[in-house]
């Protein structure tokens, strides 16, 4: 599978170390439809290719939005790209969040840091059909108030779509008057019915570990918790072997896993 050329339609700096690329096909082709939770392999000419989750609204797949953090060679090179530049895209790959299968339930979304990026299309998909769901609660933790992603969208969703948003930060600065502490502290008090809820969780692995514990403590069943896992990835088609997580390949059996299916390896060291 070879990269297809996509043009950067917009480059947006989100926070001091995160940015979003809006990509449209450069060859006039229609971009592939995608499901919330899936990812693309994004290639910077001559530098390399990295997996990045898709963050756009799946109902209008005219473009791919990718929000990422500047952490390695490829994302640093990506950060220097401008509107009009071309990148390569392979995808979409991977398993989606169970958005449609969760109709009729309360939805609890727990995000840590950049983990909100792969959940953004799920939020769109939920509010696109808002009446199909019970309460929708977003619990979001970041390092500081300056690290909060998608602030405009969060305000809009909260105002217009009956989405309950609770944000917490590790370190309060400036005029922050909201919650301080880890995101798991929000779970015991969050307004959802644990017996009829589905949880979508994405963030650092340690954050997801404690999130699962808190959700289970409230009574959310193992098979109603979904996690998006991250591993090194080179091919995205199950051949390079890098993304193996126990018997699974995160690229094709994940990244979104139902918790009970990985419960026996989740939390084991260095799996």
């Amino acid at each position: 599978m070879i990269p297809q050329p996509f043009r950067i339609r917009q480059f947006r700096q989100e926070t001091h170390d995160t940015f979003t690329l809006e990509l449209e096909p450069a060859n006039g082709a229609a971009p592939a439809a995608f499901q919330p939770g899936q990812f693309n392999m994004v290639y910077v000419f001559g530098v390399g290719e990295v997996p990045i989750s898709i963050s756009s609204n799946p109902a209008s797949p005219r473009l791919f939005m990718h929000t990422t953090r500047e952490v390695g060679t490829v994302t640093k090179a990506m950060r220097r790209l401008k509107k009009g530049d071309i990148v390569g895209v392979r995808g979409p790959f991977g398993t989606p969040w169970p958005v449609e299968d969760s109709a009729g339930s309360d939805i609890v979304i727990v995000a840590g840091g950049i983990g909100l990026a792969p959940l953004r299309p799920a939020l769109y998909a939920l509010i696109n059909n808002r009446d199909r769901y019970g309460r929708i609660v977003l619990l979001y933790g970041t390092r500081s108030p300056n690290d909060i992603l998608y602030q405009k969208e969060l305000k809009q969703w909260r105002a217009e779509f009956d989405l309950e948003v609770y944000v917490t930060v590790d370190r309060a600065i400036g005029s922050w008057r909201g919650n301080v502490g880890v995101v798991t502290q929000l779970i015991p008090k969050a307004p959802f019915d644990p017996l009829s809820s589905v949880a979508f969780v994405c963030g650092p692995e340690v954050m997801m570990r404690f999130t699962v514990q808190e959700l289970q403590r409230r009574g959310v069943a193992e098979d109603k918790i979904y996690l998006s896992m991250e591993r090194n990835m080179k091919c995205a088609t199950g051949f390079c072997g890098h993304c193996q997580y126990g018997p699974t390949f995160v690229c094709k059996n994940g990244p979104v896993f139902r918790f009970d299916r990985i419960a026996d390896i989740f939390g084991k060291r260095e799996i």
């Binding site: 290639y43 530098v47 390399g48 080179k234 091919c235 051949f239 072997g241």
Partner: peptide
């Protein structure tokens, strides 16, 4: 069968 990929210019 594991492999890596290298992009070069």
């Amino acid at each position: 069968f594991c492999h890596t990929v290298e992009d070069v210019t």
